[in-house]
């Protein structure tokens, strides 16, 4: 990792205060950094805190109920203390985000052109004419056929794959330094997914932007990410370069996840399963949060929370039984 990463998250903690006084620990002591031009995969199952982390980066969490501590340093700013006005200048400009549901993130009553042009005018200024030309150019870059015509269409006229490409075009409108993509291909068919992933790779190569890809699909991670962080119950349980994560995972949860995917190469009679349930995050367990579901757990695991330690250079695991090879050798 280079000397100064583009974005650096330090000890991020997010708590939600419910109306009934309940406090949910959504994210706990998350440390992350992404270098320029790198792609970080943020992996985990529903409710593990991966999307909340990304919303915190974008400053999109509700101020009344979300208590956020820690630091998110991006491009000389601490995003958690940056005034709203400055954040608005950053969002859509140097920081951009793509969401899973392209239909709910596009405004149905404006043409896609209007929506892209608005972004360009807000951050770059200039004439409407030049903004329109740039919008057409962006649509062409994301392979929308006949962009001169499509630019005046409304979102409902486009297919799901095209809408997602419009979202990407909009996110790229101001050449962001960091692109956060939250499950960008989950709603799409495999053929479209392949197109969108190819597109993201192309764009990264062309612009050198960093990408944080949030997904639950380990196949997608293997294809586009350089580094992976696995989240479980609000914590990062493992962080590793992509090759290492898939060849020698160091956290039992990652092992369980990898074992539970059906594979193309051989037909396992039984897939691995992770028994039990995610802990209640209003009262997180005292020790390791995965211990109750972990077949490798010892008594020590339930006593104190395990630290995130380096197992090998660049490979961190929050498991006191790592390195896991020793368990099976």
């Amino acid at each position: 990792m280079s000397a100064s990463p583009l974005i650096e998250i330090k000890d991020l903690r997010i708590r939600f205060h419910g109306d009934d006084g309940r406090v949910t620990h959504a994210v706990d002591s998350v440390d992350l950094s992404v270098a320029n031009g790198a792609t970080l995969g943020l992996v985990g199952e529903s409710g593990c805190g991966k999307s909340v982390t990304s919303l915190a980066i974008m400053g999109l969490l509700p101020k009344q109920s979300a208590e956020i501590t820690g630091a998110i340093r991006f491009d000389g700013f601490d995003l958690l203390t940056t005034p709203d006005q400055t954040l608005r200048d950053l969002r859509g400009n140097r920081l951009a985000m793509i969401f899973q549901e392209p239909m709910t993130s596009l405004n149905p009553s404006f043409t896609i052109g209007d929506q892209i042009i608005e972004t360009i005018l807000r951050h770059r200024g200039g004439s409407r004419k030049s903004a329109r030309d740039r919008a057409i150019d962006l649509l062409r870059r994301v392979h929308i056929p006949s962009p001169e015509r499509r630019i005046d269409e409304y979102p409902h006229k486009l297919s799901g794959g095209m809408r997602q490409r419009v979202m990407i075009a909009m996110a790229l409108a101001c050449d962001p330094r960091l692109l956060i993509a939250d499950e960008p291909t989950t709603a799409l068919d495999v053929t479209l997914q392949a197109q969108i992933l190819e597109l993201m790779r192309e764009l990264k190569a062309a612009s050198g932007a960093a990408i944080i890809l949030i997904t639950h699909d380990l196949g997608v991670v293997a294809e586009v990410c350089d580094e992976v962080a696995v989240m479980y119950a609000g914590e990062i349980v493992e962080r590793a370069p992509v090759d290492e994560l898939f060849s020698a995972p160091q956290h039992p949860y990652t092992v369980g996840l990898l074992g539970s995917i059906p594979r193309l190469d051989h037909r396992a009679e039984q897939l691995a399963t992770i028994e039990g349930m995610v802990p209640n995050m209003a009262q997180p367990p005292a020790g390791c949060r995965f211990a109750a579901r972990c077949p490798f757990a010892l008594d020590a695991c339930t006593r104190a929370p395990p630290p995130l330690l380096e197992v090998s250079p660049g490979h961190l695991s929050r498991c006191i039984r790592a390195p896991l090879e020793l368990l099976v050798s």
């Binding site: 060849s247 092992v255 190469d265 039984q270 490798f296 368990l327 099976v328």
Partner: peptide
């Protein structure tokens, strides 16, 4: 996908 690495194969078996 070339299957799991031998270590991972054992780990998954142990996990299950």
């Amino acid at each position: 996908d070339g299957g799991f690495s031998p270590v991972l194969e054992k780990l998954v078996a142990a996990f299950s």
